[in-house]
Amino acid sequence: MLRIAKLPIAIFALFIIVFPWIARQIPAIGNYTDIMVFVGIYCLITIGLSLLMGYAGQISIGHAAFFGIGAYISGVLTAKYGMNAWACMVIGMTVAAVVAALVGAPSLKLKGHYLAMATLAFGIIVFIIFNEEIEWTGGPDGMSGIPGLSIFGFEFDSVERYYYLVWGFVLAAFVFTVNVIQSGTGRALRAIHASEPAASAMGVNVSRFKILVFVYSAVLASLAGSFYAHYLNFINPSTFDLFFSIKLLIMIALGGMHSIWGAIMGTGLITFLSYEWLRYFEEFEIIVYGVILLFVTVLLPDGLAGVPKIVKGWFRRKVSDER
C-alpha cells in the first residue's frame, strides 16, 4: 500500500486537467479533446482488462459484450422508459457483474485457447442478441434518442464537461486498480499468473480470485458502455462486435501486458491512430495499421511500457562498451 508512486499519477492527472486547454489553443488539434473522451471511455475497459490479462493471466475476447451490456441497459432504460441515467448506470453494472459471474465461473476453469474461445463465443452470442431483439435494441440500425447526462441540473452537454466527467472516473478506477495490484490481492493474482497449482498450494483460492477480477473488469466495461451511450446519444450493435474485443486486446498488447500504465498508453495510441492519425492514409489506412501493430509486436515484445527498459539496456550496453 505504501509503495504507490504518487508522483507519476499526479503528473498524469495534471496533464489530463490541462489537456483541453492546450487543445483549445492549437486549432490543428482542436478536436483532440473529443477523441480523448473516447480514449477515457476505452481506458475504463482496458484498465480492468489489463488487471485480468496482465496480472491474473486470463484472456478474454468477449469484453465488448460487457461494454455493450452497459450501453444497452443505459440506452433502453433511459430512452424507452425515461429512467434516471445514474440509476441505470448502476443497474447496468449490476447486471454485468451477475452475467460475468455466471459466465466466468465455468469459463475460467478453461485454459488458454479454450478460455479464449469461450469468451469469444460469449461475446458473439451477446452481439447476436443485440442484433436480433429489435423490439428492445432497434436491431442493426441501432437506437437513437438516448439523453445526455446531468447531475442536479448541471448538464454534461459540452465536449469538455463530458471529458472531465469521464476522466474523473478513469483516474478513480486507475488509482483503485493500482491499489489492488499492490495489495495482497495483487500478489495473489500474480501468483495465479505464474503458476496456478503453486498459488493454490499456498492457500490462494484461485477460482474465487479469477472470478472476482473477471467481474471487476466486466463492471468497469459496463460503466464505460453507459458513458458511451450517453455521450453519443446513439448505440448500434457493430460498436460491440468481435472486432472491438480484438481491438481491446491489441490496445493492451501494444501498451504492455503487465502494466496498467501500458494499458492507458496503448488505448490512447490505438484510439488516436484509428480515429485520427491514420485518416491521412485513406485506403492504405488498414495496411498501415497492421504494419504498425506488427512492428510493435516484433520490436517491443513488452509493449510501450517496455520502452524505458530497452532504452536503459542500450545505455548500459554503451557504458559497458566504453569500459
Binding site: 491489441i250 495499421y289 497492421g290 504494419v291 501493430l293 509486436t297 516484433v298
Partner: peptide
C-alpha cells in the same frame, strides 16, 4: 521469426496483425 522472447499472446497478436495486412492488401 523475429519476435524476441515470444509469449503465446504476443504471437497471437502478431498473427492478427498479419491478417489485417493481408486483408488490406487483398482489398487493394
Amino acid at each position: 521469426r523475429h519476435i524476441r522472447h515470444p509469449s503465446v499472446f504476443t504471437l497471437i497478436i502478431a498473427t492478427i496483425a498479419v491478417s489485417i495486412i493481408i486483408k488490406g492488401m487483398a482489398s487493394f
